[in-house]
Structures are given as C-alpha cells and as structure tokens.
Design a protein around this nucleic acid. Structure first.
Lengths: 148, 148
DNA sequence: GCCGACTCCTTGAGTGCTCAAGTTTAGGCC
DNA sequence: GGCCTAAACTTGAGCACTCAAGGAGTCGGC
C-alpha cells in the first residue's frame, strides 16, 4: 500500500519537471516569461480588481512571501504589474496587473492553453481522463486554476 | 477543452510543490537528505549492481548531467555513493551505492513510505484512486518508481 | 496614549538546479 | 596512424527559490 503511494508521489514529481520544462520553453520562447511568471500573472488576473496582497499571492501560488517579492520584481520592471499601497494599512503592498500586463497575459494564455492541449492530446487522453486527473490532484492540496 | 488541460497542468505543478515540501521536511529532519537526494539513491539501488552511468541517472531523474554531478557530490562526500571508473571507457564514471548508502537508504525508504502513506491516507484515498492517479501520471512521461 | 505581540514585506546568505563552454576519451574513415 | 565528430562529464555564471533576520506598521489591553 505505501509502496504504491510512494510510487505515485515520485511519478508526480517526475511528471511535473517534464511539464514545467515544456511550458517554460514555449512561454519563454514566445513571450519571454517562465511558467512561474505566467502563473503569477494569471492568479492576479483572476483576483477581484486584478490585484492581490502579496501574502495572499504567496499562499495561492504555494510560495513563500519572499519568493513572491523576488518573482514580482522583474514583472514590475517590465511594466506588467504595479505596486499599489493600501489606504487603510500601510504594511500591505498590493500587486496589480497593468493594462499591458492584462494584454500580454491574454496572449500568453493562448500559448499556455495550446501547450496544455498538446500535452493532454487525444488519443491518449480522453476528456474523462483529464477530469479524473484534475479531481485527484485537487485532493492533494493543489489549488488550481478554477477554484478551491 | 484546453482550459481543462491547462487547469490540470497547473494543479499538478501546485500539488508537486506541496508534496516536495512535505517529503523534504520529513527526510531532512530524520535523515538529513532532500527528496532529490533520496530519489537519486533509490534509482541507484534499483539499477543492476546498484550502479549507473551519470548520464543515465540524469535521464532517469529528469535532470541534466550537470545537475547529477552537483547532486552526487555531497552524497559522495558523506560516503553514501562512490565514483567508479569504467574499464572500457575512460569517459564514463559510474555512481555506485556504498554499503552505508544501501543501509541508510533502507531507513530513508521507510520514512518515505510512511510519508507517502500519510499523504494518500484513507478515507480520502481509496487504493483504486491511487492506482488511477499513477496510471494517469505515467502517461505524462513520468518514469516512476517501478516501470518504464 | 502607549506597550507588546503580531502581521506584511524585504533583504542577505545559501541551495539546487540550469545553460553554455571546455576537457578528455572513443571510434569511424581515409 | 592521424583526423574529426560525437559522447561523458565537469565547471563557471546565473537564476529561482528557501530560510532567517529585520524594519515598518497595526491593534488590543490596560
């Protein structure tokens, strides 16, 4: 029993590295961003007002606050994200998607969807398989694209 | 369709970071190794003669040759792995598990199995779910613990 | 109204990987 | 036998993240 569990865990880790490499190659080549960058932007876009506190962003992405600070820096530098203060609490600094950010993101999104579609292409993958996989992964504490 | 595929991919990435963190904490705390170290040792142990060419190890682990060199170095330093030359081809340097390595690995393996069992514990996870997950992940090019 | 504990965020140091370039060895070809 | 290409590995530089420590701000209790 635990042998099967370990096998599943190790396979998951292995599958992820392959998957990340593929997304990084496509997104990097076409848009100059990494999968991590893309995920970050996507999360922002999904948030109400396209802005989030950095600490919540960290939680949502499975990073530390430190990781978010460092990941956001280059995106701010190239103008996809801005820093916005909170009127009520001077400790918090929101990260907000800019207009350019939003525009660029929709382009990236198309590439990302294509890439994902290629990876899960028929005939190996039926829609039902995909749904099952998503359901199983969701149980693993991974908060995905759509919801908790 | 591609939206679901992207969602699955992102959930997988997210699930992996949680999973790795958990394994790292347990393995690091009890045995002073990371999940990456453990996986490397496990692969070696599975190979005939408990030794592998570094380039094959890289392939099996989803790393570059460079990553293997750097990952192996500390394990050689603490005596879990040795470097063995090939009699026929002076370019290749095998990595081989030492006796201590083998012994330490069985301890780590127990911890890893426990951790995996906790993660996939009932009642959320039925054995059939686990099998399904493994099967789906296998299709993703992730060569796991047991097979091709 | 101020103290202490807590929260949000950043920064320095360190780790674990990557890519690109270089070294050494093997082996086919003439 | 002497090249030339290719393979196996290492190394330097760089990047993305972590942890630990610290600065700045908030808020409840008194």
């Amino acid at each position: 029993m635990s042998e099967e569990a370990l096998d599943a865990a190790l396979r998951l880790v292995r599958a992820q590295t392959a998957l990340v490499r593929r997304f990084d190659a496509r997104l990097g080549g076409l848009h100059g961003v990494s999968l991590a960058d893309f995920t970050l932007l996507l999360r922002l876009a999904q948030a109400p007002g396209a802005r989030m506190r950095r600490v919540d962003l960290a939680e949502a992405l499975g990073l530390t606050a430190s990781g978010v600070t460092r990941g956001l820096a280059p995106l701010e530098r190239i103008g996809l994200v801005t820093r916005e203060p909170d009127a009520r609490d001077a400790r918090v600094a929101y990260a907000a998607l800019t207009g350019t950010g939003r525009r660029r993101l929709t382009e990236m999104l198309a590439t990302a969807r294509e890439t994902a579609a290629e990876i899960f292409a028929a005939p190996d993958w039926a829609p039902a398989d995909l749904a099952r996989l998503t359901a199983l992964l969701t149980r693993l504490g991974g908060t995905g694209l759509k919801g908790p």
